[in-house]
């Protein structure tokens, strides 16, 4: 870092400008309030200090209009603060479509980052300038928190579920990120740097670090864990086919629907009985303890990537299944 003392953090994401604007608004409003109160306190203290001999004081017990004034005025000002803060918060909660996907797993005491094209890094995050980036985060053990001060954003990374965080970097450079939810001995060591790079440099970095993409890795797992035995097209299917599943609304056995997002797919792998698709038997075994958080991410990336007709064929089948297949068929004995 260039300067030994900082008084204001670097500002390097779109949302940070909004957060800072709100911050300065609050600083000015509360500053006026504080100066007002302190001026009155000091003025009264000097003006009405005790004299010798002391003067009798008037008996003043209150003033209704004044009370109403200083009850309603703050309330109105607070409504503005609330509205402004809420707007920013809502924007933070809605990642834009087409953002670069990054997968982050926190564990005591490190951050493991995976890029969609398979690049992996630890306690470092490389991202391109000017493009929205969406993090999908989870934890292997306790609650962590992914905090990038320069982007003015953070989220608690709770084990057992996915949470999301997004930002659009606006200034190239290197910025700290911290774990900001206390997580044990080396909590303070669970930090690293975000590298915001020129798109060209970023592409070069990607090429340099290239490995098999997450979806490809997921496909291997999909075969290896024999998901394909049941989740297959055609009459052999004992479970729903997963093509174009991601983001769809699916009817559930026993009523109700669910949106097939990351958390749903995750739950369906670890706790398959929780939400069974309408028309299918709850026969899937749990994969809890057999798939790590990172493997889960790969599987989900693969399922996300599955388009119509892309389900691989079962290994033992040499002959392609008879043409027009019905996507859903109950064949329970």
């Amino acid at each position: 870092m260039p300067s030994p003392v900082e008084l204001f953090p670097a500002r390097a994401a779109e949302i940070a400008y909004h957060v800072d604007a709100l911050f300065f608004f609050l600083l000015i409003v509360t500053g006026i309030a504080a100066v007002g109160v302190f001026t009155l306190l000091i003025f009264f203290s000097v003006r009405y200090r005790r004299r010798t001999p002391p003067r009798p004081t008037p008996r003043i017990t209150g003033h209704i209009r004044l009370e109403l004034f200083w009850t309603t005025t703050p309330f109105l000002v607070f409504l503005v603060m609330f509205w402004w803060g809420a707007r920013i918060y809502l924007a933070m909660a809605q990642p834009p479509a087409g953002a670069i996907d990054l997968y982050v797993v926190g564990k005591q005491w490190m951050w493991k980052v995976q890029h969609a094209q398979g690049q992996r890094e630890i306690n470092e995050v490389h991202i391109p300038l000017g493009q929205p980036v969406k993090l999908t985060l989870t934890s292997e053990d306790v609650i962590h928190d992914f905090f990038v001060p320069a982007f003015r954003t953070k989220i608690d990374v709770v084990p057992g579920r996915y949470v999301y965080e997004w930002f659009t970097p606006t200034v190239a450079g290197t910025y700290h990120f911290f774990c900001s939810q206390y997580c044990g001995t080396n909590h303070a060591g669970m930090r690293g740097e975000v590298y915001v790079m020129d798109p060209a440099d970023y592409q070069q970095w990607l090429n340099l670090k290239s490995e098999g993409s997450l979806a490809l890795e997921g496909r291997k797992l999909f075969l290896q864990l024999q998901c394909i035995t049941c989740h297959v097209a055609g009459p052999k299917a004992r479970a729903p086919i997963l093509e174009s599943l991601y983001g769809a609304t699916i009817p559930l056995r026993g009523g109700g629907t669910a949106v097939a997002d990351d958390n749903y797919i995750r739950e369906s792998i670890l706790n398959p009985q929780a939400k069974v698709v309408m028309g299918w038997e709850p026969i899937m075994p749990t994969f809890e303890g057999q798939v790590s958080e990172e493997d889960l991410i790969k599987l989900i990336a693969y399922i996300k990537s599955l388009g119509p007709g892309q389900t691989p064929q079962r290994n033992e089948e040499s002959v392609p299944p008879p043409p027009p297949t019905e996507t859903k068929k109950t064949e329970s004995p």
């Binding site: 509360t30 504080a34 302190f38 803060g85 920013i88 924007a91 905090f147």
Partner: peptide
């Protein structure tokens, strides 16, 4: 009098924390 001064500052900074978008940045700091 010290209480009133410090409590006022403490209370006013609470307004920063209640603002959702800003809370995200300063939370747990």
């Amino acid at each position: 009098l010290g209480f009133i001064g410090l409590f006022t500052l403490g209370g006013l900074t609470g307004l920063f924390l209640a603002a959702l978008g800003l809370n995200v940045h300063v939370h747990d700091t």
